[in-house]
Design a protein around this nucleic acid. Sequence first.
DNA 1: CGTCTTTTTGAACGTTCTCAAGGGATGTGG
DNA 2: CCACATCCCTTGAGAACGTTCAAAAAGACG
Lengths: 264, 264
Amino acid sequence: MARDDESATGLGHADMGHFVRNGGERCRECPLAECSGLHHHALEVREWIASFRKGEVHYDRGEQVFVQGTRPPYLFTVLSGVLMRTRLLEDGRRQIINFMFPGDFLGLQAAVDGEMGHSVEALTRVTLCAFARTQFFELVTQQPRLSFDLTWLAAHEEAALEEHIVSLGQRNARERMVALAVFLVQRGLDTGLAPEGVLQLTVTQGQIADMLGLSLVHTNRSLQALRRLGLVDWKLTSIRIPDLAEARRFARLDGSSQTLRPYI
Amino acid sequence: MARDDESATGLGHADMGHFVRNGGERCRECPLAECSGLHHHALEVREWIASFRKGEVHYDRGEQVFVQGTRPPYLFTVLSGVLMRTRLLEDGRRQIINFMFPGDFLGLQAAVDGEMGHSVEALTRVTLCAFARTQFFELVTQQPRLSFDLTWLAAHEEAALEEHIVSLGQRNARERMVALAVFLVQRGLDTGLAPEGVLQLTVTQGQIADMLGLSLVHTNRSLQALRRLGLVDWKLTSIRIPDLAEARRFARLDGSSQTLRPYI
DNA sequence: CGTCTTTTTGAACGTTCTCAAGGGATGTGG
DNA sequence: CCACATCCCTTGAGAACGTTCAAAAAGACG
């Protein structure tokens, strides 16, 4: 429900963020290289990726990177910042599908289909590494290692969506919230966005509601309950979980596997 | 909730269905070749797949093909029949993630991770085409076309899960049911399992409940309401949708893209 | 024909929703 | 610096949707 119509104008990538056309030379300073949660490529693979890169794009919080139903010219790897994928129903109801962190690949659906089935919006200022959609086939085809990594990312995104489905189908409001908080903080830890276990990220209660399939009012009340219970302290600009293990138990989440993620 | 403990014994693929060790010679009679909803490979690719194939497996309704948390030796392409992917919480709650039809690939998560994050159970008698998990890397790596097709399948499975998330998050009980019925009938039409638009498939109301995150009782009452409305006639062994377009409108589903699916 | 599974019904209860209104923070222009 | 706008959070109260418990009817299966 809680729709904010800030950027549903259909403008889409017509205003292409702030595109900086620069090639692989910038890859030497790739911010992902310092990310401890990522698996880093061999030099030759890195150089191959560099030759593919078309430039960098910046978006500010609230801007749309992809618009549902359009055919984007570029696909992206997130270099920094956080985004969310959303899907709209014709009557205006909105569902947030998932959040995207540094290292994630954006636009896989467009890559194979041409068209996006969802929108992607920046939650913070983000930097994206741009690839040409028309060259995607070469990317999958010419570099076995990257092809495998892409499959890896797709399989893991699928697993994340499964977990979200379990939340929506089987968990009550509080459990859902804890599960989401744990997921976000964990990803924040893996990508260096949550120093000392506190994720610095601005998420409104309206967005939480749209992610968890709850009303704004009920989201608010459940959030207060969790704060009182000392399980999760979720404020506008930060998420703090005093005891990760206890939160996991509460939401009935099983231990995370903690493998290094590849990235393209 | 509605757990049936029929096969949660952890036996898993210890009883390997009924494995028939035969190689590519059987691929000439591949039942998928007659499926109009699938994109068929060039001869050389078909032969390459044939060289990879390790045999055929059969499972009966209710048997488990994969068990959550185990490391299966084989990955499969569905040759005939229907299955479901499920995920269990420690306290016994069960969520059905999705249904799998002929042409679908089973075990992608195990392929990249070794371990399954969900279980897979046969809903009808099924025939599966078996590949060795340890050879997966070769498969992705040596055949560019197959690598792309696998990415295609992963991206589309992701899209299906997104749609399911939208259902669970934004639609009420009746809309969810109609959306699920439309999805199943559509896939049935594409794979030849729904002659005359009636899908012959045994799904209990308990299973519908576990897919849609509803109680068994409420599932029953909603189903009756839909029958009275003439929108969906869902019986134990069949799903009939008198007017597909109207059902789509009711559940606020947008037009399906209707592209040919690849298969491995 | 008896047993097991699945569906159906009733009734009370609870979670979550909707409507409605107020309060706090932040930013902008006069 | 104040007035006003905007965005987000908070609270109250009644209604709706969905759940739970309990039991019986109807099918499916051997």
